[in-house]
Design a protein around this nucleic acid. Structure first.
Lengths: 137, 137
DNA sequence: CAGTATCCTGAAAGATACTG
DNA sequence: CAGTATCTTTCAGGATACTG
C-alpha cells in the first residue's frame, strides 16, 4: 500500500492512504486537538508528575478533565501511570518512549505559536476591521 | 518578559508566560485542533486550490464547514483568497508565507502519526482489553 | 490524594435548502 | 461555482457532590 503524501505526482488528498483509510493523522489530531492533552504532554516532558502537580500545572483544568486526559494519553501509550499503594494514595505519571518521541513535535508547535502569535493576532485584527459584523471568529 | 519554556529550572507550567498569559499555543490548537484545518493546510501545501477542489480533497466535509475552515484560516493569515470575477465564479485559495511556515510542522505531524499509528492502535487494544467496560475512549 | 458519579450547557459540526 | 441561511444534533468540557 502506497501513501499519498509520499508522492508529489498526485493531486489526491495527501493525508489519506490509497484505500481511503486514514493513516493516523485524524487519531493524532483527535487526541492532541482537545483542550488539555498537549499542555499535559508539555508538562510531563519536564519529568514525572503526580496527579495534583499536573492539575496545578494546568490552571483551569477540572479534576474530571485531568482524569480523562491522562487516561486517554495512557490508553494511547503516550503516558504511563504508576500507583504507589500508600495512604494517602500516590500516583505518578510519566511519558513513555512513545510519548517522548512526540515532544519534539509538541515543542515545535509551542515554538511556532510563540514565534507567530503576534502575526496571527495582527492578521485577525485587520481581517475583523475589513469584515465588520462577520460571524467568523 | 521571560517565557517559562525557555527555563529548565522552573517547575511552573512551561507553555504559559510569567504573567500567566497564554503565549499562543492555545490559539494554534484551537485552529489546528478542529476537524478540518490541518487537512486543508496539508492540501494547500501542494499548491493553489479552488473551492471545489478543496472540497473534493477533503472527503466528508460539508460546504458550510469548508467555508468556515478557509475563512478562519484566512482570518489568521495562513491562507489567501483570490476571487476571479468570472461566470461562473472562480475563487482560489493559497497558503501565505505564514501558512507555508506551518507546513513543516504539519508535515512533521503527519509523518509522526503515520510512523506511530500502529503503536497507538496496539496500545489502545491492549488497554481496552485490560480495562473492560471502561468509559474511556 | 486521587479519583468517580451525575448533571448540564455551549460550541462545533452536520443536514438541508436556497442564490448571485 | 462558490457560497448563505437555518435548523438540528452531538458531545467535549465544566460544575458539583461524593469516596476509598
Amino acid at each position: 500500500m502506497s501513501v499519498g503524501h509520499t508522492a508529489v505526482t498526485t493531486r489526491r488528498p495527501v493525508v489519506w492512504c490509497d484505500d481511503g483509510v486514514d493513516c493516523g493523522i485524524r487519531d493524532l489530531l483527535n487526541r492532541l486537538g482537545d483542550r488539555w492533552s498537549v499542555l499535559a504532554v508539555v508538562e510531563l516532558a519536564q519529568g514525572v508528575r503526580r496527579f495534583r502537580e499536573l492539575q496545578r500545572a494546568l490552571p483551569g483544568i477540572s479534576q474530571r478533565m485531568l482524569t480523562l486526559t491522562v487516561r486517554r494519553l495512557e490508553r494511547d501509550g503516550l503516558v504511563s501511570r504508576t500507583v504507589h499503594p500508600t495512604v494517602p494514595p500516590q500516583v505518578e505519571y510519566e511519558l513513555t518512549p512513545l510519548g517522548h518521541s512526540l515532544t519534539h513535535l509538541v515543542r515545535a508547535m509551542v515554538d511556532w505559536s510563540y514565534s507567530h502569535h503576534d502575526a496571527i493576532v495582527t492578521s485577525r485584527r485587520e481581517w475583523d476591521e475589513a469584515n465588520p459584523g462577520s460571524e467568523i471568529r
